[in-house]
């Protein structure tokens, strides 16, 4: 395994056993995918970092509730 490179909650590293690049979410302790080259792995990290999805519906409602 190559040295891990970190950006935000995400890490990438090269799995020496097969040469593929792994994208890992350190916050969720979850492997997000394996990519044949580093560039594709970095694209994936950028994609996850830009993800606008929010699972915090309760907070959204609170904001809406306090109209003014």
């Amino acid at each position: 395994m190559s040295e891990r490179e970190k950006c935000g909650d995400f890490e990438i590293y090269r799995d020496e056993s097969d040469g593929w690049w792994v994208v890992y979410d350190t916050k969720k302790n979850k492997r997000l995918g394996k990519f044949i080259d580093k560039n594709s792995a970095l694209d994936k990290v950028a994609f996850f970092m830009q993800d606008e999805e929010s699972d915090d519906e309760e907070a959204d409602y609170e904001e809406t509730g306090s109209v003014c």
Binding site: C7, G8, D9, M49, S54, D56, E58, A59
Partner: peptide, 10 residues
């Protein structure tokens, strides 16, 4: 505060 921290990059 249950506020998502998405500024967790360098």
């Amino acid at each position: 505060k249950k506020v998502k921290n998405k500024i967790n990059y360098s």
